[in-house]
Nucleic acid binder design. Structure first.
Lengths: 149, 149
DNA sequence: CTACCCCTTCGAGTGCACTCGAGGTCAAGG
DNA sequence: CCTTGACCTCGAGTGCACTCGAAGGGGTAG
């Protein structure tokens, strides 16, 4: 059976709030969700698009560009639409590659500075800056992670 | 001779606007800049701190955390201040490592999707997604690059 | 039939990070 | 001396991305 969720369930599943889901639909960041008895019913495809949109937002694509992407999707599988979507995503990928470099550099600088500080007052046994991933503790107030970097 | 710049020059040098420099000072994101005849005179150390702050902002540290960092700096080289600064930076570094992973994953997914699109209508000779860095073309309207991701 | 609950729309409010304009000061050049 | 230009402060305005409350509706349980 195809999943079919209420807005509250979809909110749970996507990590967004019901408010935000309605807002995203209103501004065309996601396609209009089909209604039953006036109420939104979220299906698999809706959920997948939302997930993708959230990921794009999370990596800093502007609402405007995402709106454009979703608009192109609605046009169907025409050569034009497909080419433009590819271009849009390719541009964002290029942007992300740039970020990756900046990020790496910033991490290196921070590690240097931290090492300096620790060298002066090493109360804690320096936690060797390796490549494993501690569960990102900055940012993220309860219930609303947003904006990757 | 130590550099000493007007606010306009400092703006040029940091890539911020004069408005933003005053704003950052006002909210304590940077230390108060010394005045001569009422006008701000930016020296090397000011510029260096601003550069660091811009980098932190660029990688998504909140204004609040940066304010805290700068406040700690102003307390001088006490054990307390140094330890707390180290912790603050270490937390941000951990956060960035998390981002790095997300970013890498998103790039991989985008490349997949792009390859799919290109496979359907390959008008352009697929630009092999390698690790070199094309000059990040998304975002960045003239004069005001902001917010990394 | 009445509660109850979750849903609906609409419009207003919030917080962040700038961004700008008005009105004033000051130092250098003509 | 007077103008010019860059700077100053203060307060208000902007754009983004939510976030919320009020008022009302539909469907199921008792």
């Amino acid at each position: 059976m195809p999943t079919s969720m209420t807005i509250a369930e979809a909110a749970l599943a996507t990590g967004l709030t019901a408010y935000t889901l309605r807002y995203y639909e209103q501004i065309g960041l996601i396609d209009p969700v089909p209604r039953r008895g006036g109420q939104r019913v979220y299906g698999d495809t809706d959920l997948r698009l939302i997930g993708f949109v959230v990921r794009l937002r999370g990596t800093g694509m502007s609402m405007r560009d995402i709106q454009e992407y979703v608009r192109l999707r609605r046009l169907g599988e025409t050569p034009e639409s497909i080419r433009l979507r590819g271009d849009l995503l390719a541009r964002h990928a290029a942007y992300l590659r740039g970020q990756l470099v900046d990020l790496t550099e910033t991490i290196a600088r921070l590690d240097e500075k931290i090492a300096l500080y620790r060298a002066i007052y090493p109360d804690e046994p320096l936690p060797t800056p390796d490549t494993t991933v501690p569960p990102a503790s900055t940012a993220d107030t309860p219930s609303n992670r947003r904006k990757h970097a």
